[in-house]
Write a protein that binds this DNA or RNA. Structure first.
Lengths: 225, 225
DNA sequence: CAATTTCTTAACCTTCACTTAACCCCTGCT
DNA sequence: AGCAGGGGTTAAGTGAAGGTTAAGAAATTG
């Protein structure tokens, strides 16, 4: 699977260098030139890793980091900074940073750390389990206590996302991204597929349900009643 | 909570220095002088972070790391090494390492990274607590002594703000900003939502109340009467 | 290229959260 | 007393969000 990262960096030359290098290495790379723009991209996409410069116009890197964490987003964040003092590092980690790199850095080193951070999150499990529900990623099959569910490509992706985040609500936006990427249908497709998924869970009498968090999104969790 | 780490390092002098320093900083630190001994300590304890030298007698650091990961143990591992080549770093990350430090390192830097790694693991439970009231930010749930409150998107944001500032009064203005941002309703919405929140706290017999500071705003604090 | 599965769209209905406004109470001020 | 204003309570209305269904377009499959 291809890694996608966001680079938030106001030095246009440096940014161009990094973006070009990463694209060549097969990593899809968006770029924001200031903190506010960065935040908005983060809200509307699902990056694997975020690269944050500390000195940014409009909103500095630490603040961006804090805001991201405050919105319960745990995407790995790598800080880029010219400063090398321990104080800054401590402040970074306090803000919720996962790693940092001191400028000037070797670009290969950046690559190594991006790959390491992206691995940390995706964990290469071949099967996801929530309660008695099991999803075989390679075989693209799902079973509940032995009985198999009938999943189409889209409902499979939907269920995968819900299971990865199980017990936590997933926003509509994130679900749409997980299923369709950038190129999303402009109708009520999502709720139709959610409906199909629920029917499948009913059919096997699963002890799990897809609850809706009004105004937010959906959660996969154990049935409450 | 006190952090406990394991240092696997064959250089006895270096090990002693590190152990002493960490103990002074309030971090409990075990020591193993070779890979085999290290593995056995890891199996029989629950460390928050593992510090692994790469060059070790009996079993090298990378192999130790691989074995730990193979047994589904995801304790954060920090590699210590004299080498600085990118190849080694890649190999380290492939083996399941979380972070990397090149010798000679400043011991304060080690401390920073240990704290960061230990946070990463426990940091999952992003939850706010005031008295017996707990707010799980990721799960978007709130419970008082086990019983759960029913929160809408707006009342959730309200409670979050009040809990973040708990025991300090929050002005109306700050609450409005926290909930609606710039685009605020022009009526008495806020007091209606405060009312809903109070009802939820009543329902679970919370020992907390939202007191009003006349002409100012509201405070979440322990019941006074 | 026909048959079947899968996806999107649209229409319709239901539910829910939020706003609004009316009314209440209490307190302080003239 | 009377009245003004801040806060509390309640309930109705509105609009948006969610649920359901079916039909036809699109994509797969043999």
């Amino acid at each position: 699977m291809t890694i996608s990262v966001l680079l938030v960096e106001d030095d246009i030359d440096l940014a161009a260098t990094v973006v070009d290098y990463l694209e060549i290495e097969g990593i899809s790379c968006d770029h924001a030139a200031n903190g506010v723009q960065g935040l908005s991209l983060i809200d509307n996409n699902d990056y694997h890793v975020i690269l944050l410069d500390i000195n940014l116009p409009r909103l500095d890197g630490l603040s961006v980091c804090q805001k991201v964490r405050a919105s319960s987003d745990d995407t790995p964040i790598l800080m880029l900074t010219a400063r090398d003092s321990l104080k800054d590092k401590v402040a970074g980690f306090d803000a919720g940073t996962d790693d940092y790199l001191v400028k000037p850095f070797e670009i290969e080193e950046l690559l190594v750390r991006i790959i390491a951070l992206s691995k940390r999150r995706s964990g290469q499990a071949t099967s996801l389990n929530v309660g008695n529900l099991a999803l075989q990623l390679k075989a693209r099959t799902a079973t509940y206590a032995g009985e198999s569910l009938k999943l189409t490509p889209i409902t499979f992706k939907l269920l995968e996302k819900l299971m990865r985040e199980a017990t936590k609500p997933v926003t509509r936006n994130k679900l749409m991204l997980a299923v369709w990427g950038e190129d999303q249908p402009d109708s009520n497709s999502l709720k139709v597929h959610i409906h199909h998924l629920r029917k499948q869970l009913d059919k096997v009498n699963a002890n799990l349900s897809i609850d809706t968090e009004a105004g937010f999104g959906f959660v996969l969790r154990k049935k409450s009643p």
